[in-house]
């Protein structure tokens, strides 16, 4: 059975030659694109292995090594499960007007990001909690708490928070939390049994690796928070995203000022637990705006719009 399944993905030598002669496989080797945020390494690696007529087993075990080798589709399924776990701990707020407002703002920012398209796009939700917090699950599932929303004073600040979370997605900070051992386990199973459908044993093993990976990410998002450098990088990227979308990036420094006044010692978790203290992040963001010439002004239309939606 396994041989039969493997045979479906490993072309026979004769067929392979024929296909290569026809040029069909010549284009399979994806070369990636400098500065392109979508990781294509996994596909490139597997394609190269296929061309060399190595087994997929070898390719999976030897060549896919780290979180950056996960495909956009795998990232999506990981993100869905992380989101499902977050939404089992925090209730989603069913407010059509605010949800639409957050989603439209988020889509404008996503389009201005370095990775406008993920496997299934970006989605934004308000979740019920007094914590001042925001999360981003891999693939583009972004959450902000009602506690955080209540502290926002403008659309520029909302945009800054969403841009910061989008940046965690584009920079793959969530995926980077998966422990190497869990990925190695998954890649080994995937490599040895790569086809249309997994058998019961492989499925159980792969699901275990999947579950461990989800737990690694949720633990990072909800309990430990990101590292100092990851937060600074997401802030830096968020300033660019907000600027390119047409917002005043100063919304980030303003909101970090609010955060600094509420959490001077950075207690809590997620956005609330700022490993670098919020005051340091605020100062860094202000310097970045000045040095890159990102200063802009907030249009009155946006401040009026924010007030209208705050009432809903």
């Amino acid at each position: 059975m396994i041989n039969k399944l493997i045979a479906t993905i490993i072309p026979s030598s004769r067929a392979l030659h024929a296909r290569m002669a026809a040029g069909a496989l010549a284009t399979i080797i994806a070369t990636g694109c400098a500065g392109m945020p979508v990781n294509t390494d996994a596909l490139n690696i597997a394609s190269k292995a296929w061309e060399k007529r190595e087994t997929i087993s070898k390719a999976g075990q030897a060549l896919r090594k780290g979180f950056s080798d996960l495909t956009p589709e795998e990232e999506y399924f990981i993100g869905r499960a992380v989101a499902a776990k977050i939404l089992s701990q925090y209730s989603p707020v069913e407010n059509g007007a605010k949800t639409a407002y957050i989603n439209t703002t988020g889509q404008i920012l996503a389009r201005a990001s370095s990775r406008p398209e993920t496997f299934a796009g970006y989605h934004f939700a308000l979740i019920s909690s007094n914590e001042i917090n925001a999360f981003a699950a891999p693939g583009g599932f972004v959450f902000i708490t009602t506690g955080l929303y209540a502290r926002l004073k403008s659309e520029e600040q909302l945009a800054a928070v969403l841009a910061h979370e989008i940046s965690h997605v584009t920079l793959k900070h969530g995926l980077s939390a998966i422990k190497a051992a869990n990925l190695t386990q998954a890649f080994t199973i995937i490599g040895s049994e790569a086809i249309k459908e997994y058998g019961a044993r492989e499925l159980a093993q792969l699901t275990e690796a999947f579950e461990d990976s989800i737990n690694d990410i949720v633990n990072q998002l909800v309990v430990n928070g990101y590292s100092r450098s990851q937060e600074y990088d997401a802030d830096k990227e968020a300033l660019q995203v907000a600027y390119r979308a047409g917002y005043d990036p100063g919304g980030l420094t303003e909101f970090l000022g609010t955060l600094a006044s509420v959490t001077p010692k950075g207690e809590g978790a997620g956005f609330y637990k700022t490993h670098p203290p919020a005051a340091d992040r605020q100062s860094n963001a202000a310097s970045e705006i000045k040095s890159k010439g990102l200063a802009a002004t907030e249009a009155k239309q946006r401040s009026d719009r924010f007030k209208r939606f705050a009432m809903k």
């Binding site: 993905i9 596909l43 589709e73 399924f77 086809i195 459908e197 999947f210 579950e211 990976s213």
Partner: peptide, 23 residues
């Protein structure tokens, strides 16, 4: 069948289905 693929494997809908059932 020789064209069956390199993408679509790994963490996919089938794995999510099992995870959902377990949790």
């Amino acid at each position: 069948s020789e064209d069956v693929a390199l993408a679509g494997k790994g963490f996919n809908a089938q794995v999510e289905g099992k995870y959902k059932k377990d949790h």
